[in-house]
Amino acid sequence: MSIVGVEVESGEELMSVVIDSPDTAPYLKKGNKVNVLFKEMEVAVTTQKELDISIENRIAGSISSMEEGVLLSRLVLETKMGEVIAIISTKSLRQMGLVEKMNVMIMVKLNEIILAP
């Protein structure tokens, strides 16, 4: 098992835990390019900049558009890494008072990040 740090083009670092190690997967080599994938449903959104929580990956962004559904809502977030989509409950969206252009932090746990060499 390995925890892999990936530097994204914009300079941020993302972390992923994978079952492979450099012995079992040759692509796990310093300097090697990988794509980073995660599911929209796994993206958490907070309005607090410094949150004491065990979620390793945090990226600052702003809400560029919102689609409010009955149960779930789809947020398109502008970040340094590019566009990130987050699906959160409409209940959370309302409770947090999220609106377009708002600055937020998005968070993804390290076990949700897939690496694609």
Partner: peptide
């Protein structure tokens, strides 16, 4: 190999 051919090895997902 079959896994390489269909790109099944192209993610760390197990």
């Amino acid at each position: 190999t079959t896994t390489d051919f269909f790109g099944l090895n192209k993610t760390s997902a197990k």
